[in-house]
């Protein structure tokens, strides 16, 4: 499985660039001098202890959080306060949340077609066709007319992934997609994510699922106290962590 990792990405163009990004919550320095270059089709897993700024980092990429210093360039567009830029980037970047965040007052199908219809101005029929195709891909087409509250957590998260894919994004951000799930549902969500990775989607995942990281990641990034402490391809990262903090963290999550 791990053999998929070592691909040569040096000739591929970058889709996300972070240069010297800093962010504070009040006095708390949550992101400190982050530099990151994500190539097209690259799959990155970000891990680290809670409060290390990993969620904040990926939330800065689609401007759910605002960074205070440095540059973030997504698909050639530099993030600024310009609403047009932000909306343009959000059209290209799909996001999956820890708590699913499906819209409880809309059916599954309506959850999926909402953005294509209103943001992309797609005819309703086409949007529904795409949505049904994606629901088949995440293996729950029979739930299309139900409401999110009637689905299990794993099903809801798969709907959330399908909802993000409905916009045909170039990049997918995952913010701890399996942390809120019962153990027996983690696999069904990871399977969908692995499938997506195999199809070549550019992915940034904040997750502690190290099996997933081994299977699909091109690079694993370890964050602690707001900085990127170490990054490497998964085999090296897990076999020979260099930094003490990485060793300590891996020791805690791998040997319990």
């Amino acid at each position: 499985m791990a053999a998929t990792a070592a691909r040569d990405l040096s000739s591929v163009s970058s889709v996300i660039q972070l240069k010297g990004v800093n962010k504070w919550f009040g006095q708390f320095h949550v992101l400190s001098d982050i530099n990151l270059d994500v190539k097209e089709g690259e799959k990155i897993v970000i891990c680290g202890p809670s409060g290390s700024g990993k969620s904040t980092l990926i939330r800065c990429i689609n401007r759910l959080e605002e960074h205070q210093q440095g540059d973030i360039v997504v698909h050639g567009v530099t993030l600024s306060n310009d609403v047009k830029n932000i909306e343009a980037i959000r059209r290209e970047v799909g996001m999956v949340f820890q708590s699913f965040n499906l819209f409880p007052h809309l059916t599954i199908l309506e959850n999926l077609t909402l953005a294509p219809i209103w943001v992309k101005k797609m005819p309703k029929k086409d949007a529904e066709e795409i949505a049904m195709g994606l629901l088949k891909r995440v293996r729950i087409p029979e739930q299309a007319l139900k409401y999110p509250g009637q689905l299990s957590g794993g099903q809801q998260q798969r709907v959330a992934i399908a909802r993000a894919l409905c916009m045909r994004p170039k990049i997918m951000l995952f913010d701890e997609p399996t942390s809120a799930l019962d153990p027996e549902m983690v696999k069904e969500v990871l399977d969908v994510m692995i499938e997506l990775a195999r199809e070549g989607m550019t992915m940034l995942c904040v997750t502690h699922e190290m099996g997933f990281a081994r299977a699909v990641a091109d690079r694993v990034i370890f964050m602690d106290r707001g900085e990127i402490v170490e990054q490497n391809e998964p085999q090296e990262f897990f076999a020979n962590p260099r930094n003490e903090r990485t060793k300590l963290f891996l020791g805690q999550i791998l040997h319990h």
Binding site: E87, V93, M95, L114, A115
Partner: peptide
Amino acid sequence: PKGQFEAADAMGLNYVQKTALI
């Protein structure tokens, strides 16, 4: 919940759409 606002934002809905639809 804040997640509802964030999910709507992340999809690229503008303020009016987000408010009226979600």
